[in-house]
């Protein structure tokens, strides 16, 4: 699979751009967090496309962003569980 470039993204409609980024991000995220990959990818797709492109080029920044998203997701899920149990 050829790397995703800014010009490839720019040629696609906005909704398609997120799809293209998601398709690249998902397998990388799935390798780290198989059970949360879909939700983490969904969260990361809220980030700017240009920043997502940089993350695809830099595994380190991608990994730290994934860990950040996992932390946010866990807090969110915990608050939801405690909300439901009341």
């Amino acid at each position: 699979q050829e790397p995703l470039t800014a010009s490839m993204l720019a040629a696609a409609p906005p909704q398609e751009q997120k799809q293209m980024l998601g398709e690249r991000l998902y397998p990388l995220i799935h390798a780290m967090h198989p059970s949360l990959a879909g939700k983490i990818t969904g969260m990361l797709l809220e980030i700017d496309n240009s920043e997502l492109l940089l993350m695809l080029e830099s595994p380190e920044s991608l990994h730290s962003k994934i860990e950040e998203a996992v932390a946010v997701l866990q807090v969110h899920q915990m608050s939801e569980v405690s909300h439901k149990s009341n």
Binding site: Q15, K18, Q19, L25, T41, G42
Partner: peptide, 26 residues
Amino acid sequence: SKSSNASWPPEFQPGVPWKGIPNIDP
């Protein structure tokens, strides 16, 4: 209403058209 946030975050599925982020203004 922002109180109902149960479906967040939208889940990405490979091969399925992404529609998690509607109407974002540039």
